[in-house]
Amino acid sequence: MLNIVICEDDKIWLHSLTKIIQNIIEKNNLEAQIVLKSTNIEKVREFLKNNSANVFFLDIDFNAEKSGYALASEIRQSNVSAYIIFITAYLEYLMLAFKVQAFDFLPKPVTSEILEATLMNISENYINHKHLSSQPHKLNIKMGTSISSINTSDIVLIEKVASKTVIHLVNNDQKACRHPLEYLESKLPSNHYIRCHRAFIVNKKFIEEINTKENLIFLETGFSCPIGGKYKKNLLKHYSYI
């Protein structure tokens, strides 16, 4: 079940968002419900002490510097799989959305069509995640005369180096094979991994920052990799930048 919290400091916007989201839930028969709507982030904090939620529509500003971001940071620390969606007129806060791994960033005024697309994406992702979490995901690769089985959740980055493909893992280990990136990409769950360059595939959960000026992705593990022009539009779609 998707338990939705809406926190918006403008009462008119809060009422509008609540009404639109409720209509979308009913129209698409989504397994979802609004559990809290408020103009006060402190009420959200109090609510979460004794209740659970996994979808958060947040205004990142709240008339106080970065307070919406602070709330999002707290949510992310306690719930690594929460869906955080920023709805704001302050586009300069976009990079903050990456730091808390926001699912979406919607500039005001947001339309019902955009909200519906976002909720449908969340629902699909949630269903896929439940399916994926119910069974271990393995990637089998051929290494010389042997076959190695890797937990896909341990993969941070895959890169093409000359004639080899190098798989970087969370424990700083590496696996080298000769499988094309296209083959490995087809074997990975698309909701967790993304092609960002002709020579790179990244695990989205490790993305810390996307620098669109320098066309670089910085990962939590210290790795960085380039963004290819061919893949940039698709990459940024995941964060509603375009």
Score class of each variant (00 low, 15 high):
S148A: 09
I167E: 04
I210G: 07
K130S: 13
K213A: 11
I122K: 09
R195K: 14
L181H: 12
N172C: 08
S149Q: 13
Y126S: 13
L139M: 09
V110D: 01
K138A: 05
A162S: 12
F223A: 04
L106P: 01
D104F: 02
I217Q: 06
H168L: 05
H137T: 14
P189A: 10
I201S: 10
N211R: 04
S123M: 00
H168C: 08
F223Y: 15
H168K: 14
Y183T: 03
L181K: 13
R195Y: 06
Y193H: 08
C177R: 10
E113R: 04
L188E: 01
G144R: 06
V202Q: 09
L132R: 11
I150R: 07
Q174V: 14
M143W: 01
M143C: 15
V170K: 15
G144Y: 05
S153I: 08
S190V: 06
S153C: 01
N171S: 12
L157G: 08
I114D: 04
P109K: 06
H168R: 11
C196Q: 10
V110I: 03
N215M: 12
L184N: 02
V156D: 12
M143P: 00
T118P: 01
F206L: 03
V166P: 03
I122P: 07
R178C: 08
D154I: 01
F200R: 12
K164F: 02
I217N: 07
E159D: 15
P136N: 06
Q135C: 05
E214V: 10
G144F: 11
V161C: 10
L139H: 11
E113L: 07
C177L: 11
L219V: 10
E182N: 12
L184C: 02
S163N: 13
E116I: 02
D173T: 08
N140G: 02
I141K: 04
I122S: 05
S112L: 01
L115W: 02
E208D: 12
I127K: 13
N211Q: 04
I158T: 06
L181E: 11
D154F: 07
P136H: 09
Y193N: 04
E124N: 14
F103R: 09
N215W: 00
P180H: 06
S186D: 11
H179E: 11
L188K: 03
P136K: 10
S149F: 01
I158M: 11
E124M: 08
E113M: 02
F103D: 02
I150N: 05
C225I: 12
P189H: 04
S224C: 13
E220N: 15
V170G: 00
N151T: 05
H168Q: 11
E185C: 00
S146Q: 13
N151D: 13
E185K: 11
E124S: 12
E214C: 05
C177F: 09
L106Y: 00
T145E: 14
H197R: 13
I167H: 06
P189I: 09
I201F: 08
L106C: 04
T212I: 15
